[in-house]
């Protein structure tokens, strides 16, 4: 196995230009499980953790190499809440937000927040940079729009983030758990609301009919909150797998939606 350990972004791009099919390695918390259990044998690896430019968080641009441990103590409330639910302290000190995007698991804990705020993903190669909205980048379960020779540089948050924002996740227990369902809700003081859910569809799911309904309610009644939960449960498209059933995930989506909305009122 060949490994390149560049120390700056130019070095990463050069390494990928020379070997576009190289496997990108950030924290390793997903890749090493594939190596150990999935029989994955990368012929060549480009390791990213020495690249300071990727581990930089400046304002609304979060570098792909920023770890969950940093995000957990960062200034963005719902993203910090999501970060705290990622794995364990050991996983959070290694795993990165770029890794969540690269793996593109439907259960990626950071993804519902990115979907709820309509974040963008910045990619780079020797040919230049391009910026894709989250739903252009995440194309399916464990599928994304990253092309050979490209690296995820980071995430761009919108200029304005609603102050009211909440994330919650359901799993078999509190610590060290992969989500059965998760959700992130953001709400403006005037009522405009967005909600994205994880683990209940091939990519994060925005419940747009529910958003439209509740955004028109500046101070929702209990009946409106219940209707919001019902609509969200209708809009998700969960499957049954070894972690849970489609029925439970649909039910849980409605409960999470109501709960997060109540916390934002």
């Amino acid at each position: 196995m060949e490994i390149a350990r560049p120390t700056d972004l130019a070095g990463v791009l050069d390494a990928l230009d020379a070997d576009p099919a190289a496997t990108l390695l950030a924290g390793g918390t997903d890749l090493m499980v594939e190596v150990t259990y999935g029989g994955r044998r990368p012929a060549s690896v480009v390791a990213l953790r020495r690249v300071d430019e990727l581990a930089t968080w400046e304002g609304r641009t979060i570098g792909s190499g920023v770890t969950w441990a940093r995000i957990e103590h960062g200034p963005v409330r719902a993203l910090a809440q999501a970060a705290r639910t990622v794995g364990s302290p050991q996983i959070r000190s290694a795993g990165t937000i770029g890794g969540n995007l690269g793996t593109a698991s439907p259960a990626g804990d950071g993804l519902p927040f990115l979907a709820a705020v309509d974040a963008s993903v910045v990619l780079a190669s020797t040919a230049g940079r391009r910026t894709l909205r989250w739903d252009e980048f995440l194309t399916g379960p464990k599928q994304n729009a990253l092309q050979p020779g490209e690296v995820i540089v980071g995430v761009e948050l919108p200029e304005h983030l609603p102050e009211r924002q909440e994330f919650a996740k359901i799993g078999a227990r509190n610590a060290m758990v992969i989500s059965v369902a998760s959700a992130c809700l953001v709400r403006e003081a005037g009522g405009a609301t967005r909600i994205a859910l994880g683990s209940v569809g091939p990519t994060p799911v925005r419940a747009r009919r529910a958003e439209e309904m509740i955004s028109a309610e500046p101070s929702p009644s209990p009946a409106a909150v219940a209707e919001f939960g019902r609509l969200v449960a209708e809009e998700v498209s969960p499957i049954t797998d070894h972690r849970s059933t489609a029925e439970y995930r649909r039910h849980a989506s409605g409960v999470l939606a109501r709960r997060l909305l109540e916390r934002c009122l």
Binding site: T36, V45, P89
Partner: peptide, 19 residues
């Protein structure tokens, strides 16, 4: 398999040795 690597607590099973 927890070890401290450059000051961080990590699972050494998830660290690629070459990295």
């Amino acid at each position: 398999c927890s070890v401290i690597m450059d000051g961080e607590l990590v699972c050494s099973c998830l660290v690629m040795a070459a990295d």
